[in-house]
C-alpha cells in the first residue's frame, strides 16, 4: 500500500524509474522457488543482497542484465527508496559498458511447478475489492489513512471452453453457472484481500451459494461463506451481466456487495463485527502486463481449475 501510494506515485521516483530503468514486478512466492534459468538468475542476484539465506526474498532490487546487484532496499519510505535509486544509478554510471552489456539467451523451459500462464484462448476478468463504510446514507470507501482503504486487485481466469459453455447456457435460456466457474469465484475471489494475502475458502465453508444467469445474460446470486468456528466469513449478493459473442466474452460485469468479518493469517486488522465490502468484476483486454498476472489463488493450479475437488 505504502509503495503504491507513497513511493511509486512520487513524481521524482516515477520519473527516474520511467526514464532510467527497465522496471519489473514479480511474485516472490513463485520466483524464489523456480528451478529454471529464471530462478537461477534471480538467485544469483539475491545472493549478493541481505536476503541471502533468508526464506523470503521480498524487496526492491536494482541490478544489471549481467546479474550484478547495484542496490537493495525493503524500506517503504519514498526518501530512502529515492536515495537507493540514486546510489544505484551512480554505481551503474561507474561500470564500464563492457560489464553492463550481455547477450541474453533464451531461457528454455519454465519450471511449470512455479510458472502460471493463461491457457490458450482464455480470458481475464479484473476483480477489484474494497472495504466500504456507510457515510451520509450511502456506501463509500473508507476515509483516508484507515488501513484497508485501497482497492485490491486480482484476476479471475476463464478457459475458452468455460466461456463457450456460458454462452450456450445463456442462449438456451439460462440456469445455474457451472461449478467450475461458480466455485472458482466463491473460493478464490469472494474474499477480503485488502490488507494482504487472504487464504482460500474451503468447499465446506461455502454454507449458502447460488449463482445463475438468465437467457438475457443477467446474473444474480447470493452467498454465505464462513469458517467452521465462525471467526471469519463473508455474506452478500451478486448481480451483473455476462455477454458472450462468438464464443468470446464481450462483457463480464459483476457487482458484489456484502459484509465480511474476521482475519486470516496475512490479513490482520479487520474491522470489528460484520463490515461492508464491495467487489467489482470487469472484463479485461489483457493488453497490459499488469492485466496478465496470475490469480492469487492459482498457486495450486489443479484446485483453481477444478475447485469442486
Amino acid at each position: 500500500m505504502a509503495d503504491r501510494l507513497l513511493v511509486f506515485a512520487n513524481a521524482e521516483v516515477k520519473k527516474l524509474l520511467k526514464e532510467e530503468f527497465v522496471t519489473v514486478a514479480a511474485d516472490d512466492w513463485y520466483q524464489r522457488r523456480r528451478k529454471d534459468k529464471v530462478g537461477e538468475f534471480f538467485a544469483k542476484v539475491v545472493d549478493q543482497s541481505p536476503r541471502k539465506g533468508v526464506h523470503t526474498k521480498q524487496g526492491h532490487y536494482i541490478f544489471t542484465a549481467t546479474g550484478k546487484l547495484l542496490g537493495f532496499n525493503n524500506n517503504r519510505g519514498p526518501e530512502k527508496r529515492l536515495a537507493m535509486i540514486k546510489d544505484a544509478l551512480s554505481e551503474w554510471d561507474k561500470l564500464p559498458k563492457g560489464v553492463r552489456k550481455v547477450d541474453v539467451p533464451e531461457h528454455g523451459k519454465n519450471d511449470q511447478g512455479f510458472y502460471r500462464e493463461l491457457p490458450k484462448g482464455g480470458q481475464i476478468v479484473k476483480v477489484y475489492t474494497r472495504c466500504l463504510e456507510e457515510r451520509s446514507g450511502r456506501l463509500q470507501k473508507l476515509a483516508d489513512n484507515k488501513i484497508g482503504n485501497l482497492s485490491a486487485v486480482d484476476h479471475l481466469w476463464l478457459q475458452h471452453l468455460e466461456v463457450r459453455q456460458l454462452g450456450n447456457l445463456i442462449v438456451s435460456g439460462g440456469g445455474p453457472i457451472s461449478n467450475a466457474v461458480s466455485l472458482r469465484i466463491a473460493k478464490f475471489h469472494l474474499r477480503d484481500n485488502t490488507r494482504g494475502e487472504p487464504r482460500d475458502w474451503k468447499t465446506n465453508e461455502i454454507k449458502e451459494w447460488s449463482l445463475k444467469v438468465d437467457g438475457q445474460g443477467k446474473v444474480s446470486g447470493n452467498f454465505l461463506i464462513g469458517s467452521a468456528d465462525g471467526q471469519m466469513g463473508y455474506q452478500g449478493k451478486i448481480e451483473g451481466m455476462i455477454l458472450v459473442d462468438k464464443g468470446r466474452l464481450a462483457k463480464f460485469d459483476l457487482l458484489v456487495l456484502g459484509k465480511h468479518w474476521g482475519n486470516s493469517r496475512y490479513t490482520q486488522g479487520a474491522r470489528p463485527g460484520k463490515a461492508p465490502m464491495g467487489q467489482v468484476f470487469r472484463l479485461s483486454d489483457g493488453k497490459r502486463a499488469s492485466d496478465r498476472i496470475p490469480p492469487q489463488g492459482i498457486r495450486w493450479a489443479p484446485g483453481y481449475w477444478n475447485p469442486a475437488t
Partner: peptide, 30 residues
C-alpha cells in the same frame, strides 16, 4: 512481469533493472 524479458530489454537498451519483489504479486493485492 517477466524477469527474463526485463533482462533482455535491459541488455538491449543498456539500462539497469529495477525489480519489485513481493509475496503476493505487487501489481495485485495491495
Amino acid at each position: 512481469t517477466d524477469l527474463w524479458e526485463a533482462r533482455k530489454e535491459a541488455a538491449r537498451t543498456d539500462k539497469p533493472i529495477y525489480l519489485w519483489e513481493m509475496d503476493g504479486h505487487p501489481l495485485g493485492c495491495v
